[in-house]
Amino acid sequence: MTLTVSDLGYAYGAKRALDGVSFALMPGFTALLGPNGAGKSTLFALLTRLFVTREGRICVAGQDMARAPRAALSQIGVVFQQPTLDLDMSVAANMRYFAALHGIAGREASIRASRALEQLGMAERANERARDLNGGHRRRMEIARALIHDPKVLLLDEPTVGLDFKSRQGIVDHVHQLAGQGLTVLWATHLVDEIRDSDGVVVLHRGRVLAHQRAETLRAGRPLADVFIEMTASEVPT
């Protein structure tokens, strides 16, 4: 297991955002499927240690997030919902800045940057200013950047928000490819068309995990969208 979450809870004051969330992921693509307000972003904030909680445990590649936060964080690559690019720097400079935040510098940083950009089909854009890239390419750059320190786990929080269909499709394909190469991917979304039959699906609703299954098993021959709507509509509010 590369990412284990057990019995995780979090509250904003009296409002419980996450309650007893548990799942364990192996390398491959897992979608974190939930409607808006399900607690996806809170879960991501906990997984990246922007928030901490006393309830439950997070383990990344064998490292406990509470006991060894830095070892755990070094195994995580993350793409946030909001873009986090320095628009006036070139793609390569953005990549190198992030590498340096992980302590990678000089030639090593450049090699890793070009390798990561190549993986995402962005090699030829290394010297363009981030501002000049379209939305899809900016996102790809952020994914490449998240891979620069060779993490075992890649977290993406609704990475296709605001992109056109073609860019979305491209990014979904690329990330599935990465998952096929042995990366553990957790992809938060509320769009069922980004999920393939072979993917794992964790359904999150009102801060609880309703299901964790292969998409094919979960939908049982019906369209995934119908199953998802049914599940999230029938749940009684807590």
Binding site: T48, L73, Q82, T84, L101, G103
Partner: peptide, 18 residues
Amino acid sequence: EMGSMRLLLTSPLPRWWL
């Protein structure tokens, strides 16, 4: 608000140093 602080804070280096 824009998120680049998050990028900084998810670095594995200690926060006080960053």
